[in-house]
Amino acid sequence: MNIFRLLGDMCHLVAIIILFLKIWRSKSCAGISGKSQVLFALVFTTRYLDLFTSFISVYNTVMKVVFLVLAYATVYLIYLRFRSTYNSESDSFRVEFLLVPVAGLSFLENYAFAPLEILWTFSIYLESVAILPQLFMITKTGEAESITTHYLFFLGLYRALYLANWVWRYHTEGFFDQIAVVSGVVQTIFYCDFFYLYFTKVLRGSGKMTLP
């Protein structure tokens, strides 16, 4: 554990809590991609199956359980509790175009051809693209509420901090996880365009982020 990793995890947690509270308090999931949230729930489910097979630390276990619970609670809010506010027609990204290649790649490129390893690899690949339905939705509607952009900002910051974490681990421990690092870099790139808009539009005070 290093400072980048810890801050990264905290940003990840903050992002998830921001989204959950936004939906809970406003009783609306307008502008939120339910598909991205289902993908994230799938990411956590397939990655954290090791909760049943190996114990790493209390921190690790608690965080995994919290992420799982919040991910499913968010999906519940979007698809059941506040379903009437869900913009399903704007959330039109075809997730099968992500799931099929990601599933195929996880069978081809993994560390071991074992069920848990393939599922872990699948979760890593899937996480790197899971935000695309959300970004697609913002591009399609041309705007996002500022609270949604804060959510995306913390999610992107979490990714950037994980990159710093890997640089740190490489130099201090000689650690290099090719699958996680390559996917992590790809994932972070997806946020770059968003980061630019966030700093130039949202932080300059306009309530919503509108695309040029």
Partner: peptide
């Protein structure tokens, strides 16, 4: 050999 290094990350 299953590489488990990254599995300690979230």
């Amino acid at each position: 050999q299953v590489k488990v290094d990254a599995h300690d990350e979230l």
